[in-house]
Each structure stands twice: as C-alpha cells, then as structure tokens.
Design a protein around this nucleic acid. Structure first.
Lengths: 227, 227
DNA sequence: ATGTTAGGTCTTGTATACAGTGTCCGAACT
DNA sequence: AGTTCGGACACTGTATACAAGACCTAACAT
C-alpha cells in the first residue's frame, strides 16, 4: 500500500462535470448571467442530473455561479468593479503566500516553481496562449503550495481560477513582463527574503490590476462593457 | 415586484441539512476524522441521500470535510499546526477587510457593527456563551460586509466559521478583552482611519492566536492533544 | 384597455432504485 | 502459523422517477 493514493487516483464523473462546466464558464462559452438548466447540462454532457447538481453547488461555493432556490443557477455576473475588487484580495492573500513561501522554502518547492517557469517559457515560445494562461495560474498556485499552509491553499485555488476568468472575460492580457516578474518573485522566494517576496508578489498583482483597468477602459471606449 | 426576493426568501431542505451538518461538526458532535456515511446521515436527519450528498460537497469546499472518491467523506482533521496556520490567513484577510471597511464606511454599516456589539454585550451579561461565540463570528463577518468587496465576503464566511471551529475544538476561550478589541476596531473603522483599523484587526487576530496557542499548550500538557 | 385568474408547462427539489467498487473477513492452501 | 484467494457486505456513484413550485400565457371580467 503506497501513499500514492492521494485523492487523484480515482476520478468520478462528477469531478469531470465540475471541471468541464468550470472550463466552459471560464472560456466564455457559458456567458455571464446565462441560465444553467440542469436537464440541458445533463443532456449536453451525457450524464444524469445528479452529478450536474453537485457540480453546480461546488461552483457556487467557488463563486462561478449564483444559485437562487427554486429558480436555478446562473453564471455569475462580473462587473468591472467586482473584477477590480478581486485584486485587493489577491494582493493580501498572494502577498502572504509569497512571504510564507520564502520563509519555508525547500529545495523541492523551489524546484517545482522553476519547473513551472520553464514550462511557461516553452509555451510562450511556441505561442500556445491558452497554455500560458493556465501556467500563469499554475505558478501562482505553486507559490501557494510552497507556503505550506493548507487553508491558504484551499482558498487560493478558486481565487486564482476566478482571477483567470476575470482576465479572459476582459480580454486583458499581460505581456512578457508578467513572466519576468514571476522570475523575480521566484528569486526572492528562493533567497528566503520574506519582505522582498511579499513586495514583489504585491507589485506583480498591482501590475496585473493596471493591465485589467486598461483593458476595461479600452472595452468601455469601444462600447463593449465587461458585463 | 420588490427587490426583497434576495435569495433568503426560500429555504430548501438541503440548506438546512448543510447548516445542521456544519453545526454538528463545529459543536464537536461529529468528531475529527469521523466517517460521514450518507445513509446514516440521511436517516438521522429524516431526508434522502441527495440533499446530504450535496451538503457534503459544499462542506468539502469550505474545508470542513474531506472527501475521498469511492471511499466517502470524513470530518476534516485539524492538527494544532493547521489550526495555527489559519491565523496567518486571518491576519491578511481580516486586516484587508478592516482597511476597506474604514475606507468605505457608511452610516448603515457602522450602525450594523454597533448593533452586533450591543447584542454581544447583552449576551455576555446574560452568560449565553454559545451566543457569544456566534456573535463574535457575526462581528467579524459584519466587518467583511462593511468592506463592500463581494469576493472577500465569499471567502470570509467559511474562513470565520472555520476559525470558530478551531476555537471550540481547542477549548480556547477569550475573555472580555476580545470585546474591547472589537470596540476599538469599530471605532477606528467608524473614524475612517484605514491604517489604524487594519492594525487593530491584525492585533486582534494576533491576540486570538496567543489564546489559541496557550490553550493548545495546556491541552498538550494534560495529554489531550487537539487531534 | 387593463387587471386578474386559471391552466399548462418548465424547472427545481426530493426520493428511490440500481450498478459498481472497495473493504473486510474467513477459509483453504502452503 | 502465515499467506493468499475468494466471496459477502457496505458504501458510494449514477440514473430514474415523482412531487412541488414558479413562470408564462391566455381567456375572462371589469
């Protein structure tokens, strides 16, 4: 009996439904405010209503859908203001994550961060944009894991998914700056400099916020409001 | 059509099951690591397995239960270390909440905070200890609401419930100091002093951590480890 | 013309039934 | 005596069925 059986051994239908619904919401295939009818989703995914219902509850807890009793679930709406609010939370949470990651750094966690950075570099070179977005989230999540705080991780996972959603919904994009900022953050963590790590993480999120606000401004000028 | 229909109009069975299971976990009636068999919970609460299953998924997202596919759900275990880790997260998150609450203060939110403080004072006078614990959480949550950040609120609700759980599980208790700290935090928020509000919130959580660590130390000395 | 009410339809909420998988225990074999 | 294999049991995963409520429409009355 090995210890490899850490959850991911089995993957239930419901897990896949949850992931698939989340993916379709994040990709914009399910638009904001769109009604999520259990029957149709079940038919669409070739399953019964039960896994769909349970998935919807999870996605509601993550903030991706809003559920009104006896009415149903709709994809959450994301005003520009709500999108902006997320950055305040991220600065606080990710700043802490970076600080703790620097404090508790291990060779294993540093190795993991470096590996994600390397994968991202390749994806950028090959122009795989969707992979870049996923790897961006993966890097931030890896910092959270390096912090070694279980509850911090539990809350960071949906938070970062939401952040990715916010970016994709606003057609906001960050250039190569983002990855140099990641590298710089990694170095501070690897050096064990808590203050610097936190400062760089906060600055990185602040830079992301500026990109977001620019994109929102652009959208407003072209009459394509975020919501 | 009034705008009063804000979610809480209807209360489904599943909502009550979720609340009831959470309550029994937080009260210790369902001990850490205890297996949660769907059939038995359904029979216990007089419902079918479906509401129970959905509730378990929600509680898993909140971190109260751990679900292993094809094995089942168990009440999450809470080591002393994990309990302590929560305070780091709380300081970051609640510090932000206090700062934003001070920034966006309104007469309505200030009134609401004052009302909770008043209710708590009465509960303390009347010696209703369980109500005091709930009102403690309610105050912290009210600060979160006063911050006017929807996602911050979404994550604070389960975080504060978990904090209450940590305290009750360790038999940690805080005296009247806690409420004078609350009052002091309220005043900083009402005065709109962001820096002071954040500092007092952080100090308050830090004080709670000291109480927790004292209780854990006491438990360890008496051979009653938290887990 | 407008308000109201009754019916039908759509969708959620809940329960029950079935299938599949893992666990545990005992018996047979080494 | 220890080990391994097999089968019964228990529980989860998934599907289907039924109940109840909400919304929409249309006919009717005022």
């Amino acid at each position: 009996m090995s210890d490899v059986s850490l959850g991911a051994t089995h993957r239930t239908l419901r897990d896949e439904v949850t992931a698939e619904l989340r993916r379709r919401i994040m990709s914009g295939e399910f638009g904001q405010g769109e009604r999520l009818v259990e029957d149709r989703l079940a038919a669409l995914l070739g399953v019964s209503r039960n896994p769909v219902r349970e998935s919807i509850r999870v996605l509601a807890a993550e903030g991706f859908v809003q559920v009104v009793p006896r009415f149903g679930a709709t994809v959450a709406t994301l005003s520009a203001e709500e999108g902006d609010e997320l950055f305040d939370v991220r600065m606080a949470v990710e700043g802490l994550a970076a600080r703790l990651a620097a404090r508790k750094r291990t060779t294993a966690s540093a190795e993991r961060l470096r590996r994600v950075l390397e994968e991202a570099r390749q994806a950028v070179d090959e122009g795989r944009l969707d992979a870049v977005a996923d790897l961006n989230t993966a890097f931030h999540l890896a910092v959270g894991e390096a912090a070694g705080n279980s509850y911090l991780n539990l809350m960071m996972t949906p938070m970062l998914q939401r952040a990715q959603w916010v970016f994709s919904q606003t057609a906001a994009a960050r250039g190569p700056h983002s990855w140099s900022e990641h590298l710089s953050l990694y170095e501070a963590i690897a050096a064990g400099d808590e203050d610097e790590a936190q400062a760089r993480a906060v600055a990185h999120v602040a830079a992301a916020r500026r990109s977001f606000l620019t994109a929102v401004g652009r959208a407003n000028r072209t009459k394509h409001a975020i919501n």
